[in-house]
Amino acid sequence: MAETTGPAADVLPGSDMNAPLLEVEDLRVEFAVRGRRIPAVRGVNFALEQGKTLAVVGESGSGKSVTSQAIMGILDSPPGFVTGGEVRLRGVDLLQQDEETRRTVRGNHIAIVFQDALSALNPVWSVGFQLGELYRVHRGAGRRAAEQKAIELLDQVGIPDAKNRVGHYPHQFSGGMRQRVMIAMALALDPEVLIADEPTTALDVTVQAQIMRLLRRIQDERNMGLILITHDLGVVADVADDVAVMYAGQIVERANIHDVFARPAHPYTKALLRAIPRVDAVGRELEVIPGLPPNPAALPSGCPFHPRCRAADPERCGDEEPPDRQAAEGHLARCHFAEEVYRDER
């Protein structure tokens, strides 16, 4: 485990070390588009424990990236606004903090890795300079010490020949190496929570395997909480402890990884698992989810999934928005028939 290097910045005032690492409760985000308020995140709840990996799975437009931006406090505002809920880090509600405190939280406590590493790095500064800057600014380290630290970090994220590579510029790295640099930057200030937003989507499978392996190793070493945001259920199956499936701005199913894959309790999850082609199974007719993902500006009444759902009750699901139901111990699903779907009766 890496030593905490900094002084006061590392302890958030008012935090309670016995409280859960990160809790999100009823988080709501809206976007103002041409005078209208469009809900992007509609009451998201989850908790993340130290050393655990939570995968947030969803298709484009499901609100998974907006959720992570709201947690980080980097939502583009306007047009985006957090309109309700709490994001508690060790018991401290981040949404109530001033911008100064939130800036300290970013990097020191929660860090994020994006999909597009090339645009997230500044092309005119060397990688070592950008890494070292974090130490100079946040920790007041000298130039020499900062560079030393940068080399150490690059080495940790598996960049060969870190001593020489530290002076290179972002474009001199391959896609996979750049993503490693991004991870190094995220880790620089020893965060307790790492959010990885589609970290491997732009990468080839063999490189994806390397990066996922790296993330797993680092999480183990540092005992961090990891939120993995992805659309790839294969990646989820490989690394996650818990899964939250998002649809139309809500978490529609939340449970332990094995439960979700073996016995999904929401028809959407169930359909999604059947819709993915698998590399280890011979071609069968792919099951499809009919229709299109909903438009957040014109959500269907009742359950947002009901127009595409095979198990839907035409009256109940169209009128009544389902609550979170417990299909089994620790297995929540936002469906009127969660128990039946769980038992495979629907």
Binding site: T206, A209, R213, G234, A237, D238, H258, F261
Partner: peptide, 26 residues
């Protein structure tokens, strides 16, 4: 072989039970 082994399989039960060939370098 390396390419196929790197493709994640959506089945958590297989975690750690599949051969993983991780290629070095670019």
């Amino acid at each position: 072989q390396a390419l196929l082994s790197a493709v994640p399989v959506p089945d958590p039960a297989l975690r750690g039970h599949r051969e993983e060939i991780v290629l070095q370098g670019d």
